[in-house]
């Protein structure tokens, strides 16, 4: 049961990583790529690492296994706070350096 649940979480995480990569390759300019990878990476990492924490409890809920799962979940919290902030910082740095946003009329890729 836990294995099936964690496999589903892995698959969902891989899906979001895949969409992030497609967005990175196909989006027209810097800001669109930033938002695609920023969102996709964060949610993909969240789902994948939650799946790992769940899979770690596969052999019963002993104290050691629960502690390891808690530490893994701390990584998730850290990523959830730090990753959007890094995306924001990079996008703001691009804005300050004068990177022009893509428009349909301009079409400068």
């Amino acid at each position: 049961m836990i294995t099936v649940l964690s496999i589903l979480l892995f698959l969902a995480g891989v899906f979001f990583f895949f969409t992030a990569t497609v967005g990175l390759l196909r989006m027209p300019d810097f800001y669109c790529r930033m938002q695609a990878t920023g969102k996709g990476d964060t949610l993909g990492a969240f789902l994948t690492i939650t799946g790992l924490a769940l899979y770690n409890l596969n052999h019963g809920f002993t104290l050691a296994a629960v502690l390891v799962s808690l530490k893994i979940m701390f990584i998730v919290v850290f990523i959830f706070v730090a990753n959007p902030t890094a995306t924001h910082a990079i996008a703001k740095a691009g804005m300050d350096c004068g990177v022009e946003p893509w428009t349909k009329e301009g079409g400068n890729t």
Binding site: F78, V81, A82, T85, H88, A89, K92, D96
Partner: peptide, 18 residues
């Protein structure tokens, strides 16, 4: 220096756990 509320708040939040 460009002050930025988001980055400063998150850093204030994250530096003690780090």
């Amino acid at each position: 220096r460009y002050p930025d509320v988001t980055i400063e708040t998150v850093c204030r939040l994250l530096i003690p756990p780090i």
